[in-house]
């Protein structure tokens, strides 16, 4: 298995005006190269939640999209901190530390990480004060 496509997108802290733009671009790329609507939708939902998280909770970061020759889609969302103190809590549906600004955007329901985990076929998260990295993999489901 080798990576046949890679693109790295920057996500800026507090860039509310462009929130979701990276996710839109990723979704368009996936559809253009012929990834099925069902998989594109799962990737889009996960990356959108990750992007929103990065804007409202983190000091910005990058989202990397990789596609392998076996059709696997990998997303790596890596931010610059401040980290998630209690990952287990953050994965609990309904748990939220979102700001008023996040609420105004329509987020802060406490469904971000649970949504990401549910849509990905493989999910790993590492977090320290230096930053949080989400590593997600997606494949066609029968």
């Amino acid at each position: 298995m080798s990576v046949i496509y890679e693109k790295i997108y920057n996500v800026e802290r507090d860039d509310y005006a462009n929130a979701g733009l990276v996710s839109s671009l990723i979704k368009q790329s996936l559809r253009t190269i012929g990834i099925s609507p069902a998989v594109s939708r799962r990737v889009a939902v996960a990356v959108y939640e990750a992007e929103i998280n990065m804007i409202i909770h983190a000091y910005g970061g990058t989202i990397t999209l990789q596609i392998s020759d076996d059709g696997m889609i990998r997303l790596i969302a890596k931010d610059k901190g401040p980290g998630i103190p209690d990952i287990e809590k953050a994965l609990t549906p309904g748990f939220s530390t979102a700001s008023k600004k996040a609420m105004e955007l329509g987020f802060g329901a406490g469904m971000g990480l649970p949504n990401i985990k549910r849509n990905a076929d493989e999910f790993s998260i590492e977090s320290s004060p230096a930053g949080t990295t989400l590593d997600l993999k997606f494949q066609e489901r029968e």
Partner: peptide, 14 residues
């Protein structure tokens, strides 16, 4: 919700 995120959400979900 009357902002861009409503449209983005719709776009992600088709």
């Amino acid at each position: 919700l009357c902002n861009a995120q409503a449209l983005r959400t719709a776009q992600m979900l088709d």
